[in-house]
Every structure is written in structure tokens, then in C-alpha cells.
């Protein structure tokens, strides 16, 4: 299958390793990955902060960039949810945007959804010999309803010990511009999330969204907890061969 990667602006700029991991993983599974270079940002920050018109213009840009793709894979549950749940609200009924999104929306997937639902794999042949906890980010959990999918993928990773995260379903407090507009509450939520993570004794915290991980990871780092954070794609892309080379 020819898969269009929407890497997202945050991953593109700050976490290119995640994008590279998605490419490595999908190619290893025998698929062709394309990166439409006109892509930029889904507009979630604008939309969630109340800037509807710029968000709508970015939505049009997205629809144009990915028009005709068989499948669009996004290594960010919240950006995937923005495209699938909120784009239809941005275009007036019957507008070009809403018609295009009615067609394209159902083919936009978070990475874990794509692996489990479309490719039908849970064992992607990964190797990651570490104690890991998974934080189900809010938009992955409640908007996309990822459910068991990320856990199924992680349980199939060789060498990986999956630990249970207390209070897993609770928001980490990132919330985009919430993290600075209400910095004190955001920090208090992040502190509690980081404490729960550290208490599990995990070496690595993973999630389907690097923006949440940037917030929790930044807190874990400030607390000198020793826990590192990584996108689930990087765990799933990791193989025994790469470990032997490292």
C-alpha cells in the first residue's frame, strides 16, 4: 500500500526521529511511504485557541495536499482527531472543504489504528528490552477511541516489559496553549502525571503524541526522575539488529 505520511509540524520541527521511525517501520512491513512536501500544520493550535479562520485555511491546505491519498498516517492522535473530528465543523455544510473531508477523513489514521485496523498487524517484529509505561493521551483515548490497540502493539514487542500506569486516563495537563495560558494548573497536572510515571519504576514512558510527551518529559526531566520519553513509533520501529549495532 502507498501510504501518505502526515508527520505534523511538531514532529517535523522538534521530533524528526518519530517521523523517521514511522518511515522505517512501514517500509519494513513492506509498504511504500510518501511525504507530500507541501504539508505543514493541521491547524489544531489555531482551532483550539479560538482562531477558527486560520484553522479553516490550514484545513483547506491539508485537504489539497492529501487529496487522493489511499491512506494518511499521522504519528499524533490529537492531529488525527483534529482532521477527522474538527475539520467537518470548520467547513460550512456542502462546502468544498466539507465534501473533501467527508471523502478523505475516514482514510486519516493515527499510526496505531492504521497498524491494527488497516494492516491487521499487532506484532510488528520490534525489539525493545526495557520497562515501559504507556500514557493514553486524551485525544487518542476519548476522541479516536484507540482503546487496546497501543497496548496490543506494545505487548507484542520482544524484550519489552509493559507496566501499568496508575490514573492512566487522566489528562497530563498539556492542552496546547492551555500549558501557558493556565501554566500553574497545567504544571500541577503534569507533576501528578510525572509522579505516577516515576512510581511505576519504568525506564521509558511512551505515548501516541509527542506534544503530551514534551510536557510530561519536560516535567520528568526537571524532577531528575531518570525516566525518558519516546513516541510509540520509535519503540515499534526498533529491532534486534539495530540493538546489536548500537
Amino acid at each position: 500500500m502507498r501510504i501518505a505520511l502526515f508527520v505534523t509540524c511538531v514532529n517535523d520541527t522538534l521530533f524528526p526521529d518519530t517521523g523517521r521511525a514511522v518511515v522505517r517501520l512501514l517500509e519494513r512491513l513492506g509498504h511504500e511511504v510518501v511525504f507530500p512536501e507541501n504539508q505543514t500544520c493541521c491547524g489544531q493550535m489555531h482551532y483550539n485557541t479560538g482562531y477558527r479562520r486560520p484553522a479553516a485555511r490550514l484545513a483547506v491546505r491539508f485537504a489539497r495536499t492529501f487529496d487522493g491519498a489511499d491512506a494518511v498516517v499521522v504519528p499524533s492522535a490529537s492531529c488525527a482527531a483534529m482532521v477527522r473530528d474538527n475539520y467537518p465543523r470548520l467547513g460550512a455544510a456542502g462546502s468544498r472543504l466539507s465534501r473533501k473531508m467527508a471523502d478523505l477523513g475516514p482514510r486519516v489514521y493515527d499510526l496505531t489504528e492504521f497498524l491494527v485496523d488497516v494492516l491487521g498487524v499487532t506484532d510488528v517484529g520490534a525489539y525493545f528490552p526495557h520497562r515501559v509505561v504507556y500514557h493514553p493521551t486524551c485525544h487518542g483515548l476519548r476522541l479516536l477511541g484507540l482503546g487496546e490497540r497501543p497496548y496490543q502493539l506494545l505487548r507484542a514487542v520482544r524484550g519489552l516489559e509493559l507496566l501499568e500506569l496508575p490514573g492512566a486516563a487522566e489528562c497530563c495537563g498539556f492542552g496546547g496553549t492551555f500549558s501557558v495560558k493556565n501554566g500553574d494548573v497545567s504544571a500541577a497536572m503534569g507533576f501528578d502525571k510525572a509522579r505516577h510515571v516515576a512510581e511505576t519504576g519504568a525506564e521509558v514512558l511512551c505515548a501516541v503524541d509527542n506534544s503530551c510527551l514534551m510536557h510530561i518529559g519536560g516535567t520528568l526531566s526537571r524532577q531528575r526522575s531518570g525516566v525518558r520519553v519516546t513516541h510509540i513509533a520509535e519503540i515499534l520501529a526498533s529491532t534486534e539488529k539495530e540493538y546489536a549495532h548500537a
Partner: peptide, 19 residues
């Protein structure tokens, strides 16, 4: 407001699109 309570990630030398 961010760095009051959290560290910032390192900015990579190369973006994904450059790679």
C-alpha cells in the same frame, strides 16, 4: 510559563523534511 516548571527539548539540527 513553560520553562518555569519543565525542561525544553533539544532542537534537532535537522528537521524531518530536510532529512
Amino acid at each position: 510559563k513553560w520553562t518555569d516548571t519543565r525542561d525544553v527539548p533539544d532542537v534537532p539540527a535537522e528537521s524531518f523534511r530536510q532529512w
